[in-house]
Design a protein around this nucleic acid. Structure first.
Length: 451
RNA sequence: GGCCCUAUCGUCUAAUGGUUAGGACAGCGCUCUUUCAAGGCGUAAAUCCGGGUUCGAUUCCCGGUAGGGUCACCA
């Protein structure tokens, strides 16, 4: 059995989206799982619709997703070979020049394949035997001219020349397969193994497409998804490992993947589950890797300040707790979510009131908290702060004590708990923030300043 | 419409003749709790329909139905 060679053959006529990408993922995973090769072939025979920027987008997307290919071809570069095959097909009577009625955009002469009008069957690795009568296909066109081969001819010749053993592509190609097998037989090429993947569907269960709102892959990159999470999710849509494992690294997928576990029916692309998988991957990142990635999504000020105060590691802990994507972190940062880590908050005094109570009730509690914390030595940390304050909070009412304490430290209605914040910003800053609020002049002026 | 493919909770799926039809996401509830999250626990939710085959069908066969794909001088 010769070594496996799979290919991903997109046409550069649009941005790469999840539908296309899933085909690439399965072809890639199958190649890797069987120690074979993965080939990228840009199918750019349609000179009108093919655009260089789309080709760049395909390559950039695959790079971002770490789907590295062993070989890369551009179909338009095989013109000589296609011409040679066409000539042979014509001279041997399998194809012929056909005079047509010239329409507006049509040629008056094209090359048609002489259809033997037989029933063609093939064994699909996913669906079993598929059988079709090719009679109603007629003598289909395989080239616009001797130098302008069309899809079916180019695909067959290139797959043959590149030694493709497994054609893994979308279900929408099933009806193209008999035609291509006919050409293979005419030119003496071996028929590869076909595996027609179930389609990725949009919410209305139609084929995922740009028109139906499929995002380009790079949009996922820009909104803070991890390439490995996207790979993980795409692999799980239409395939399952046969176990209950759901979170996979790329290596694990390469080992676990097999054609036998592929689903036959189409599957809806569910962003919610993608987000969950992305979160799981974020949770598994090292603090260093997480911070490095987060830096791309944070404001320069946040990055600089957290780095300068050496608080990035603590910040990572907080960020992780509340985000499914790095885009969530960017949103939070833009809303000032991480400011209190490196900057004394400015807050209206009314914030101190627990559940709408008069803020003045909070001041005695804050004074007491301050007194409880002042004696703490160099064992300062979230746990010791909590231990020092907790009994008092229990006695006086947690909300009465902890709400104003938290707000005094964060200046925000929503934030992590006061112990965690105190632990991160340190003793001096914690005491300073409490004193700042207790200095009634300050509090009043803060209040006025913010209206 | 012709041809082709498909059919298990809302969604992704497990179970290839014998299970209380399992898991995950989402939902809901409870819990934790100073806030917002996260977490923990729990709950509801499915075999498209009709015939066969069989002691027994989610599973095999046939027929419907439904959905999808495809019918280019695009790929």
């Amino acid at each position: 059995m010769s070594a496996v060679v799979t290919r991903f053959a997109p046409s550069p006529t649009g941005l790469l989206h999840s539908g296309n990408y899933r085909t690439a993922v399965f072809a890639y995973l199958f190649a890797r799982s069987s120690g074979g090769k993965f080939v990228l072939r840009i199918e750019d025979t349609d000179r009108e619709r093919s655009k260089p920027e789309y080709e760049e987008n395909i390559i950039e997307s695959l790079q971002w997703l770490h789907l590295e290919y062993d070989e890369r071809y551009r179909q338009s570069e095989h013109g000589t070979r296609h011409r040679e095959v066409l000539e042979k097909l014509i001279s041997s009577g399998f194809a012929y020049l056909s005079k047509e009625e010239a329409g507006d955009t049509k040629r008056n002469e094209v090359i048609r394949f002489k259809n033997p009008n037989i029933r063609v069957s093939f064994e699909d690795a996913i669906r079993g035997t598929v059988s079709m009568d090719t009679t109603d296909l007629g003598d289909f066109v395989i080239a616009k001219s001797i130098d302008e081969p069309l899809f079916h001819l180019a695909v067959v010749v290139d797959d043959w020349d590149e030694g493709i053993t497994h054609v893994i592509r979308g279900e929408d190609h099933i009806s193209n397969t008999p035609r291509q097998i006919l050409i293979q037989q005419a030119i003496g090429a071996q028929t590869p193994v076909y595996a027609h993947l179930p389609l990725v569907l949009s919410q209305d269960r139609s084929k995922l497409s740009k028109r139906r709102g499929a995002k380009s892959l790079l949009e996922y990159r820009d909104s803070g998804y991890l390439p490995e999470a996207l790979l993980n999710y795409m692999a799980l849509i239409g395939w399952n490992p046969g176990t209950e494992q759901e979170i996979f690294s790329k290596d694990e997928l390469c080992h676990a993947f097999s054609l036998a576990q592929i689903q036959k029916s189409g599957a809806i692309f569910d962003e919610t589950k993608l987000a969950w998988i992305n979160r799981e991957h974020m949770l598994r990142m090292s603090p260093e890797a997480f911070w490095e990635h987060a830096e791309e999504f944070l404001t320069e000020e946040t990055v600089t300040m957290l780095d300068a105060k050496n608080l990035w590691r603590d910040a990572v802990g907080l960020m992780r707790e509340r985000a499914s994507t790095f885009g969530d972190i960017r949103t939070a940062d833009l809303a000032g979510e991480y400011r209190y880590l490196y900057e004394r908050p400015v807050l209206p005094v009314s914030f101190l009131g627990w559940k709408g109570e008069d803020p003045s009730h909070a001041l005695p509690h804050l004074r007491q908290v301050l007194e409880l914390l002042e004696p703490l030595g160099d064992v300062w940390g979230a746990e010791t702060v909590k231990a020092a304050v907790w009994p008092y909070a229990e006695t006086e009412g947690r909300g009465q004590v902890l709400w104003p304490m938290r707000v005094a430290l964060s200046g925000r209605e929503k934030s992590p708990d006061p112990f965690v914040i105190a632990g991160i910003i340190g003793k001096d800053e914690t005491l300073a923030r409490l004193r700042a609020v207790l200095g009634s002049d300050d509090a009043v002026s803060c209040s006025e300043r913010l209206g």
